[in-house]
């Protein structure tokens, strides 16, 4: 077996983190993307820019501010302590919060594009056919935007799997809790275990390629996430 128990633990942890993050992001990103797609508010530009920030910021910058705000003296830290949850840095929950921020634009932007592409036409038609706003969203918008939702899920998942800088900043390197594949790979390289490193790095390469193949290989719908 070329993968050690520690490697497998890291892989399992990474998949758990990516799955949880993707589900939460779809849940939270849906209303945000809908608002961005439909609003005529002047805040749209500001909110859109904030959502896009993780695209351009170095992950270490995101990680640094998250570390401070989730720490005992930070805003998030104060909240979690008041709720009796302790502080989030160097915990799995902390990694989830970090991943939500880090992968936010990769989920929100494809959703927003897909919602915008649905347009007013089907929504107005549904309204004249007695469908309430909620009903319209679930019976018309979501089915028509399905390719965008799938794209958002795939990108959110894949991007979270590839996370490194943020993890290192707020999660550290705790086996079974915060040591994800990318960190495990880093450890192997540091320890000059290149054979082990190859297995993980090659696995990641193959995984990423298959994800992108799934995205671009789908007929008709080309991803438009940026």
């Amino acid at each position: 077996m070329p993968l050690s128990a520690a490697d497998l633990t890291a892989i399992r942890l990474t998949l758990e983190l990516a799955t949880l993050t993707t589900l939460l992001l779809l849940l939270l990103g849906m209303p945000l993307a809908w608002w961005l797609a439909r609003t005529r508010s002047r805040l749209k530009g500001v909110v859109g820019a904030v959502v896009a920030l993780p695209l351009v910021l170095p992950p270490t910058v995101i990680g640094f501010y998250l570390l401070l705000s989730m720490g005992p003296n930070g805003a998030i830290g104060g909240l979690t302590q008041a709720l009796g949850l302790g502080t989030l840095p160097f915990s799995f929950a902390g990694l989830v919060v970090g991943s939500l921020v880090y992968s936010l634009p990769f989920v929100v932007q494809p959703l927003q594009n897909a919602f915008e592409a649905v347009g007013d036409g089907p929504l107005e038609a549904a309204a004249t056919l007695r469908a309430s706003p909620w009903d319209r969203f679930f019976s018309v918008v979501l089915p028509l935007a399905r390719p965008g939702v799938v794209t958002a899920a795939i990108l959110g998942f894949a991007h979270t799997v590839g996370e490194f800088g943020v993890v290192l900043m707020i999660g550290g390197n705790i086996p079974g809790k915060t040591r994800v594949v990318s960190v495990q790979l880093f450890d192997h390289v540091e320890a000059m275990e290149y054979a082990q490193a190859h297995w993980l790095a090659g696995g990641m390469l193959l995984f990423s390629f298959l994800i992108l193949l799934a995205l671009y290989g789908r007929r008709q719908h080309r991803p438009r996430w940026s």
């Binding site: 107005e124 038609a125 549904a126 309204a127 004249t128 028509l144």
Partner: peptide, 20 residues
Amino acid sequence: VPAHRRPLGYVFQDARLFEH
């Protein structure tokens, strides 16, 4: 009264059928 509570039928120039 919002559109979905008005008992009317609307035929659009471009039909606007639900493609799904």
